[in-house]
Design a protein around this nucleic acid. Structure first.
Lengths: 241, 241
DNA sequence: GACAGTCCTTGATTCCTGTCAATTGGCTTG
DNA sequence: CAAGCCAATTGACAGGAATCAAGGACTGTC
């Protein structure tokens, strides 16, 4: 199968990658046309349903992925079943823990998710050969670490009300990173139970706090999932900033 | 000033680095003798008192450091004064947030701390020139991310008793990474208030939980700081594993 | 359009942790 | 050794979130 094509602007870039929404923003942005071509020979795109397990907790993975669209939740579970979502990943994030077999977290699709997967060996070889790729990975990892630490403050020191507001703010800013206006509308990418597991609360408490925000007209909710935030500043106040 | 010396085994390694406890384990392990020499010309070692501010929250830092000995706490604070410690760093960790002016966390010495500091520009130039250095940084950052996510589970889903046990376990394993026996003795690197800020609790609750562990003979405490753990397995059970 | 199934909301109550306050204990200083 | 100081412990009480338990809303199926 030859997915290469001659093109005035992208003479050697694989077709698959030319059409890729994450082509420039993600780690692939560090690769040359030639490298993309080589990688694309072993890569495969697929679309998965919500709740699909993308990375197992201890099971060693044989591939890495780039998120093309959708939201992926990273979670940890205790022996007795208590669960904590430790991170959300959006396009064009890189999925997988380089240089280690086990990583102690499992990754599941929160929404419908499109990913582009590469064999583990191919990526690890390219990392060794391409300092630029490793640099991109370091940048993303540092950003994830910053976000994890922000969330630790939320988990450790905020009230239930502030936590729920913080979550809505997180989704609002990540779903529309370049939103200009103060009003935002979006669909929540996950259930009340998932939100609770992300905030270290129970489903009931999340529901009560959402109701409170709705009654105070900080948010509007239709169909449990569709949310409108009329004034981001007011939501931000509720989040403890 | 010439700190270079001829030596049969380390012909060109700077004296300062030859005696460095973190020479091989930390990021410096990625450097050649020549590079160490170049870096050592601009590096300086110093010892600071507990509570010394090493990195300001928003203040841009002009230098990076390696921790030679001691414990550094990374913390975030809310506008109203609520505080959360988001990480502890031990030797030979690298201190500082590359590629960004602000990092949103402040770093303070928890114990007496020895650091080796380098000018920001020198390190950033060497990172660009030395893929090995960047690789070491990525490895450390990935480890810190793993640890941050472990702690998120602790903050979000564990009870006060489990949190305090988890903290003791963390210190016990990091203070003596290669401890063989089941019994450990060490000094707590921080106050009850700091422990509370790390666990998302109050000082009083930490104190009560320590008393409970002491009464159950899971730990022994002398002088508020000196702790003995007779059986790590039993402590581990208390931590929720 | 009735039914089941799932997810979410709401209510009543319990319990853990926070808050406020007093006391103890260890360490330093004179 | 007493005084003073700061950190830690302990106690009494209050409050916020968890738990337990119903009830409601939306979706899809037959």
């Amino acid at each position: 199968m030859d997915i290469q094509r001659k093109d005035v602007h992208n003479s050697d870039t694989p077709l698959l990658c030319q059409a890729c929404e994450s082509r420039h923003r993600g780690v692939c942005g560090a690769l040359t046309s030639e490298q993309l071509l080589q990688l694309s020979k072993h890569s495969s795109r697929r679309t998965v349903e919500p709740e699909t397990e993308l990375v197992g907790e201890s099971l060693q993975t044989k591939s890495y992925s780039n998120i093309i669209s959708g939201v992926v939740k990273l979670s940890k579970m205790m022996a007795d079943g208590r669960q904590q979502i430790v991170g959300l990943q959006f396009a064009p994030d890189f999925l997988g823990r380089p240089f280690r077999q086990e990583n102690g977290v499992s990754a599941q699709a929160a929404t419908e998710v499109k990913v582009c997967s590469f064999p583990k060996a191919a990526i690890e070889r390219m990392i060794r050969e391409m300092p630029e790729l490793e640099h991109k990975l370091l940048e993303q990892t540092l950003t994830e670490l910053d976000e994890a630490r922000d969330w630790m403050l939320t988990l450790g020191r905020k009230t239930a009300g502030e936590k729920v507001a913080s979550f809505l703010l997180l989704i609002a800013t990540h779903a529309f990173p370049d939103n200009e206006s103060d009003t935002v509308t979006f669909d929540l990418p996950m259930s009340r139970t998932d939100i609770a597991d992300f905030l270290g609360l129970t489903m009931e408490t999340v529901s009560r706090q959402l109701t409170k925000l709705r009654k105070d007209d900080v948010i509007r909710i239709v169909n449990n999932r569709h949310v409108t935030i009329p004034d981001l500043t007011r939501l931000s106040d509720r989040a403890g900033f």
